[in-house]
Simulated assay, not measured.
Amino acid sequence: MIRLNLNIVFLGLSITSSWGNGHATIYRALMKALDARGHRVLFLEHDKPWYAENRDLPTPTYGRTALYSSVEALKDEYAREVREADLVVVGSYVPEGVAVGQWVLEEARGGVAFYDIDTPVTLARLPDGEHGYIDSELVRRYPLYLSFTGGPILERLQREYGSPCARPLYCCVDPELYYPAAAMNEATPETGVWDLGYMGTYSGDRLAKLNRLLLDPARRMPGQRFIVVGPRYPDDYPWPGNVERVEHLPPGEHCGFYNCQRFTLNITRRDMVEAGYSPSVRLFEAAACGTPIISDDWPGLGTFFEPGHEVLIAESSQQVIEYLNGVSETDRRRLGERARARVLSEHTAAHRARQIEQYAMMLLDRARPRAAG
């Protein structure tokens, strides 16, 4: 049975700023859900200029959030919290994460886990010895490796890299923040402001698919409207005239953004495609809003959404054009409704919070015989 009032500490990339990263919205949803379930939760974030200048949630209202200026300051100011926690979770891309992880493993008396929101990227770098937030030794030392990516990569973490226990912890969505605006009787621009939209930080390995699945259809359908949201795109990129560009959209505006699209596009990074079983948080957010999704294909996608029934798969410009012109309004709405029902039944923050509870109790149960001895 799950013991209530667990004491949980997260050390993550950022919860205060969603600028240029997908970590913040995931941590916000988890923190909020765990707090709602009666747990004491602390999030520790390294105070970095990039995020300090772009904070869209400087003081979350759930749990407790604190900033630290350096690893030494972290050790001086938060050793007690780490030592007394039932569970400490160190996330991927934490600045000086190797030093942080080594310290946490020495200091913590409860369970310790690593949460990798970037597992395929992590494993691609480990063989080259690029040690930033984790190294091969820490993979073996962390008692629990929680992975954003599921499927075969979990066995690989255990077999090839020596993780004692690798388990999935997929991203999730907060249904109080992402929902069909019409169902909540909220005023929002009429659905169809954009025929197709995409949100994602610029990545060179996604650019070819963005061209094929959105920009080329836009050029071939000048009478329809498109939008691309995300930072770091080249300033001189040749956007078609019917493609609106937005550099950054705060999370508070994501729900309205999805509700203003007839369809939304999901594009997966190359590392994630090769690993499979790596759903983007944007995929769940759009589905929770009831917005029909057109996605590239990747191994494991069918374990999250049924192709053709809850999500549409496209690999060519022509397929996208056929969806935009050929799917009836009734079928379009039903597609979004089915995807939303799937997310609400399996992929909310409350589902992930219960998983974290189970993982925490598993680690604490394993530690008890050693403590008794």
Rank of each mutant, 00 (worst) to 15 (best):
R141W: 12
V139C: 06
L154D: 05
K75C: 02
D128R: 15
V173M: 09
D128E: 10
S136Y: 03
P120T: 02
Y145S: 03
Y133L: 04
E155D: 15
Y145N: 05
Y178V: 00
L157D: 10
L105F: 03
P120Q: 07
T149L: 07
R83G: 07
R159K: 14
E130A: 10
W103H: 08
L169D: 00
A108F: 08
C165P: 00
Y145D: 03
G63A: 03
Y78Q: 04
Y68A: 08
S163C: 14
P95A: 14
T65K: 01
L146E: 02
G150N: 04
P164R: 01
R140D: 12
R140N: 10
G111P: 06
R83M: 14
R167G: 00
G111F: 10
A166E: 01
L123E: 03
Y115K: 01
E155P: 01
E84M: 13
D128K: 13
A73Q: 11
D76S: 14
E84P: 05
G91F: 09
R141Y: 10
T149H: 09
G97E: 12
V104R: 04
V104E: 00
D135I: 13
P164F: 01
V82P: 00
Y142C: 11
V71D: 09
V88H: 05
Q102H: 02
Y68G: 04
F114P: 00
S92G: 15
L154N: 11
D118F: 14
P168W: 10
E106V: 02
L126M: 13
D135Y: 07
Y78W: 11
V139I: 15
Y133I: 06
V71F: 06
E72W: 06
P168Y: 05
E107R: 15
V98Y: 12
P60Q: 00
P95H: 14
Q158Y: 01
P175K: 10
L154C: 07
S69A: 11
E176M: 04
C165N: 14
F114Y: 15
L138R: 09
D86C: 07
R109K: 14
V94P: 03
E106Q: 13
R167K: 12
E160N: 15
V82S: 07
V98C: 15
R64D: 00
H131Y: 15
V82H: 00
T122K: 08
L123R: 13
Y62P: 00
E77W: 03
T61H: 07
G63D: 03
S163T: 07
R159F: 10
L154I: 00
A108G: 11
F148Q: 09
F114T: 02
E107I: 08
P164S: 06
I134E: 10
G151L: 03
D118E: 13
L146N: 06
P127I: 08
G101V: 11
Y179D: 01
Y145I: 09
V104S: 02
L126N: 03
V139N: 10
P127R: 12
R167T: 06
G132M: 10
I117G: 05
